[in-house]
């Protein structure tokens, strides 16, 4: 489904080289790594949004980096993308944001589009807020709207960048992870980048990690036992423990208050 062949990049003070990666159809790969390790760059390269120093990105047999803008747009229609930041268009409602690709690519009128997206709104529990604007949404809802928009055209391939980043509450985390697992059951090919070990554990069929500007399989990284990897794994454990401790503290305080 997606293949990266000897991809190298040198961007935004993030460098990586010789990246080889293969994600077969229907599989879910998670790329784990700290912030600024190059995770977002990998996704943007796969979307043809930023150039590479060298290498090829093959999506469904086509090198997205070699085709012209129009060809890229064709390939991108097969891909859903959930970015990290607030990416909803402020001047459109929730329904408008989710249905935007349908209106643009198929010329669907607004009323018809609202009917078409209703099952998706129901699936993500967004039907009550479909006429709200992005500025009125909670972070949880914003992330769910982004996911709904990404899957509205039933993409074969889904890129999700830091799905649980930001101030998602525990409910939001559980919901997002749950929807990702549902999509896995539907055999959608998914590439997730995250710094959350918990999400990686919950969703990954295959797990990769960015270490020393290289993308390596997590299992291989564990075997090598180099000091850098041990230190990094410890920091991941600490990060995870901190999250757990924070949540435990939060819930204990709630109980005390009651």
């Amino acid at each position: 489904m997606i293949k990266l062949k000897s991809v190298s990049f040198d961007l935004f003070s993030v460098k990586a080289g010789g990246i080889n990666f293969h994600l077969p159809a229907g599989d879910t790969a998670v790329i784990l790594g700290p912030h600024n390790s190059g995770k977002s760059v990998i996704i943007k390269i796969c979307l043809g949004l930023i150039p590479v120093t060298s290498g090829e990105v093959i999506i469904e047999g086509e090198n997205i980096l070699a085709v012209k803008k129009q060809g890229q747009a064709k390939i991108l229609r097969k891909i859903g993308y959930v970015p990290k930041g607030p990416s909803l268009l402020d001047n459109l409602t929730v329904a408008g944001n989710i249905g935007l690709p349908l209106m643009y690519h198929s010329g669907t009128a607004y009323g018809e589009m609202v009917e078409k997206i209703r099952p998706t709104l129901i699936r993500f529990g967004l039907e009550k807020i479909s006429e709200k604007f992005p500025s009125d949404l909670s972070r949880n809802d914003t992330r769910l709207v982004q996911m709904a928009r990404a899957i509205i055209q039933k993409p074969k391939l889904l890129f999700i960048h830091e799905p649980t980043a930001g101030d998602l509450d525990p409910d939001g985390f559980v919901k997002v992870a749950g929807y990702i697992r549902d999509l896995q059951k539907e055999k959608t090919t998914i590439l997730i980048t995250t710094s959350s070990p918990a999400l990686a554990a919950a969703c990954a069929n295959s797990l990769y990690i960015f270490l020393d500007s290289k993308l390596v399989k997590f299992a291989d990284a564990l075997e090598s036992q180099s000091p850098i990897i041990i230190q990094y794994l410890k920091s991941l454990r600490d990060y995870s423990n901190e999250q757990d401790a924070g949540l435990t503290k939060f819930f204990s305080r709630e109980r005390t208050a009651e």
Partner: peptide, 16 residues
Amino acid sequence: MRLKHHDEILDSMGIS
């Protein structure tokens, strides 16, 4: 739109 990278988001949806 540029500050919020909405141009990239549109690009990623194949929207010119």
